[in-house]
């Protein structure tokens, strides 16, 4: 494994460990809320969604979460695809495709986080 690949792999591992914390909070708050009561009311109701979106920290949390999750997920997918005896040309194409997809999805998700923050502030 080249030094650059080693760094990318290390980031994959570290992003996974960070995601356990970030996604863990998300799962506990959204999908175990009836047991743990971390969020007041229904976390998917528009009133609570809008209230959360007013906090800049929520947008920052979401963007960080998005970046780590996209990197961890798409790099993991790349590793699986590269194990399938594909040619070097196809492997190079897979690399480029996943980088472009990751950047576009990150840009879209970041826009959604900022736009919902603006929308929530405007409706206060």
């Amino acid at each position: 494994m080249s030094i650059k690949n080693t760094k990318l792999w290390t980031w994959h591992v570290l992003a996974g460990l960070i995601l356990i914390f970030l996604l863990g909070l998300h799962m506990l708050g959204f999908h175990m809320n009836d047991v743990l009561h971390m969020v007041e009311g229904d976390p998917l109701d528009w009133s609570t969604v809008s209230e959360r979106a007013q906090a800049l920290s929520q947008a920052v949390f979401y963007i960080l979460f998005l970046g780590f999750a996209l990197y961890h997920g798409l790099y993991g997918l790349r590793n699986i695809l590269l194990e399938l005896n594909i040619s070097d040309g196809t492997a190079g194409f897979v690399n480029k495709l996943l980088v472009v997809a990751g950047v576009l999805l990150f840009a879209f998700g970041t826009w959604a986080a900022i736009a919902s923050w603006n929308l929530a502030k405007a409706t206060v």
């Binding site: 969604v49 809008s50 879209f108 998700g109 959604a112 986080a113 919902s116 929308l119």
Partner: peptide, 11 residues
């Protein structure tokens, strides 16, 4: 990502 982005458009 796409489903939750609907919160950025409207209630």
């Amino acid at each position: 990502i796409f489903v939750t982005s609907s919160r950025a458009i409207s209630e």
